[in-house]
Amino acid sequence: MATLLVVDDSKIDLKRASLLLTKHIPEAEILCAAQGEEALELIELHAPDVVITDLQMPIMNGLELVERIRQKYPQIPVILMTAAGSEEIATAALKKGAACYVPKRELAVDLAPIVARLLGAARERIHHLRILNSISEVSFELQNDRELLVDFVYELREFLQHRGIFAEHDCFRVAMAIDEALANAYYHGNLEVSSKLREQDCFSFERLASQRREEQPYAHRKIFLKISLGEELTVTIRDQGPGFDLKMLPDPFDPGFVERPCGRGVVLMRSFMDSIVFNEFGNQVTMVKKINGTEIVSKP
């Protein structure tokens, strides 16, 4: 059953909004709060699906309440009820993360359909997450498209955060390791552009990469990525380039390393994952991160 929280210091308006919601969304449980602190307590206790709040309230106004909810419960959408003349502050609330606002004079017409739409979106999100949470192994065949790869890293980080197998900080670390491995596969693997160009100037490297994106044999190469989730997260990334000599990787303990403009990707991968292993050709890397402190089994 859906749970809705209505917040308003005006008893009349609170009653009106609650009755409207009860009439149009009879399956929902309606909770009521007369001010912000009380609303936050009810959110903590009942985790409502949607919060509908007045904008102008004493002690904690709607703007502050939106901010507090966004910080602690970013998944809960907030609808603002606004009186005439408060459009400016409503715009500020939208910037702070409110889902939308409904003028109080339009409540009878607009409130229920908006709440129903947000409830539908929340249900879809839950179904989506249930499917994502069922993944134990998944493979991708990615075009050598930098924008796609960057989007992929972002979505993967979101997925890891939703799945809750790592703390947020570790999700960033894992995402960065995968980001670096994909950048290596894209530039150095498939496009065969050497980091040495970066040491000359920042233009030559991008110029050659841009040129090769249109040329054969580079243009149609792909990146293969496999993720396994069990007691540990294992990510294998393979490109279709000729590979590289592992001995050519820069030594991070070399005194000149700090001043080098490039060569930090593999250092970051090694630091943020528990193990990384390249294949003999250097065109495939397997990275492992322990989940919840499980022991890692060393791989060849």
Partner: peptide, 12 residues
């Protein structure tokens, strides 16, 4: 969030 490309930009 940032990555090694960002570090290169800082060095430049």
């Amino acid at each position: 969030y940032a990555n090694s490309l960002f570090l290169e930009i800082l060095l430049n």
